[in-house]
Nucleic acid binder design. Sequence first.
DNA 1: GTAGCTGCAAACTCTTTGCAACTCT
DNA 2: AGAGTTGCAAAGAGTTTGCAGCTAC
Lengths: 137, 137
Amino acid sequence: MSNLEERCSEAGLKMTGQRRTILKVLSDASDHPSVEDVYDRAKAIDSSISIATVYRTLSMLDELDIVTRHEFQEGYSRYEVNEDHHHHLIDLETGKVIEFQNEELEILKKKIAQELGYDLVDHRLELYGKKLSKKKK
Amino acid sequence: MSNLEERCSEAGLKMTGQRRTILKVLSDASDHPSVEDVYDRAKAIDSSISIATVYRTLSMLDELDIVTRHEFQEGYSRYEVNEDHHHHLIDLETGKVIEFQNEELEILKKKIAQELGYDLVDHRLELYGKKLSKKKK
DNA sequence: GTAGCTGCAAACTCTTTGCAACTCT
DNA sequence: AGAGTTGCAAAGAGTTTGCAGCTAC
């Protein structure tokens, strides 16, 4: 039983074939798939799965903090399995998502929230960029 | 003629009554209104305005870089007039949006993008927090 | 056995668009 | 005059949901 399956069982979810399929797709994903992506990959394993189940499952997993739902200003959601904390740089030309971490940033964000009188609960940072070419701007 | 109207005319847009109304709503707004919000406020001035026009106008203004469209993980868009560059701290208890600026952050973000081989085109940082209970800053 | 899960299709929300009438320049 | 703009309604895209049958526990 995979780690993700375990976490779901512990949360009281029934481990159905469809859920196993979706969890496999997610743990195999090295990108940030949309619902449609997850659906397509799941169908490759179990062609009878429905997109409603994919939506329902991803929502539950988000609720359980097993995945994070992102809205990268694209008009639809993309999901990723929660692992280490990081942020995203979105390549404006290809849509590719690059992950990065930065300790300085973490410290700075906490400091900013504190200065505003807030306790930082969550945060999102997205950088949108274009690949540097030989020519500089 | 207001500053916003001027900028639109310069961009080659015809200055219709509906556009004037929407621009007034936007320049009067001190919050980050949704399309529905803008529509409601515009209707209070000109009850015949249609929501399609509000959508079309806001899209144009976004294109012209006069406003910025935000998607604060709420499932719909919110707009704000572009003025000084800043970021948002969203109060998780009240939904209130607090704006802030931080020079250190700006430098750090550019640096991160450079290091990843990218030219920073745009970026979004959102902090989600809860008010510190004890004393105020 | 039964609470929970699924597929299906319909419904919903937000946003965009085709079109004919109208209006700013 | 004529291109651009508008309101309307219909269509799209993404997501949610009611329901009857099915399944894990």
